[in-house]
């Protein structure tokens, strides 16, 4: 199912304005430029990781609110300027990389990336897919073990991003890529 509420019950709840506002403020910091307060994608990911299993209900709500809003935003990504889209791709890929979503929601996240990679080479969403994939490529082999039949590598043009393609092909065989490729 493509409907988020069907795959992610926690995303279904109603969030108070305070939770919405707090979630908004963190996203704001990702896209801000100094002298406004900023946070890096990695800092936000670390915070989300803490909030996910927090004993404080408000923090778990902020986590669910942020993730839900990000997923719901997917359909608007083609309207983003390049810089903001790249930041968003790093955040989206980082969420997959860090295992912040699991099961059906993870399946949906991966499908969004796959869908982006099916867009024409050079299109905005294609680059979104590549940038997101670049973040979680180190985890690819885990997913390919569980997710037979979806061939990410086939979606990537032969004439571009050959390193990422090779990386995934090693992952499909549950092998580590050569050390020289790590960079």
């Amino acid at each position: 199912p493509s409907d988020l509420s069907q795959v992610w019950p926690e995303a279904n709840q109603h969030f108070s304005k305070e939770i919405d506002d707090e979630a908004n403020s963190y996203f704001q910091r990702i896209y801000n430029h100094p002298p406004h307060p900023t946070m890096s994608v990695d800092e936000v990911l670390e915070m989300l990781q803490r909030f996910k299993d927090s004993t404080i209900k408000r923090e778990r709500e902020v986590f669910n609110c942020m993730l839900r809003n990000l997923f719901e935003e997917y359909r608007f990504f083609p309207q983003y300027p390049d810089k903001e889209l790249h930041i968003t791709a790093c955040l989206f890929g980082g969420i997959i990389e860090k295992g912040l979503v699991t099961y059906m929601a993870l399946g949906l996240a991966l499908r969004y990336v796959l869908e982006a990679l099916r867009k024409p080479f050079g299109s905005k969403m294609y680059y979104f897919g590549i940038a997101a994939l670049d973040r979680f490529k180190n985890r690819e082999s885990d997913y390919n073990k569980a997710k037979k039949g979806v061939d990410l590598a086939d979606q990537i043009s032969y004439y571009s991003f050959s390193n990422i393609k090779m990386y995934i092909e090693y992952g499909q065989q549950s092998r580590d890529p050569p050390v020289k490729m790590q960079g």
Binding site: H14, F15, A23, N24, Y31, N69, E72, Q79, E84
Partner: peptide, 17 residues
Amino acid sequence: PSAPRRLPIFNRISVSE
């Protein structure tokens, strides 16, 4: 359930180009 409210920051980003 109704669709979630789009956060203001996202509205701002997608119209800024």
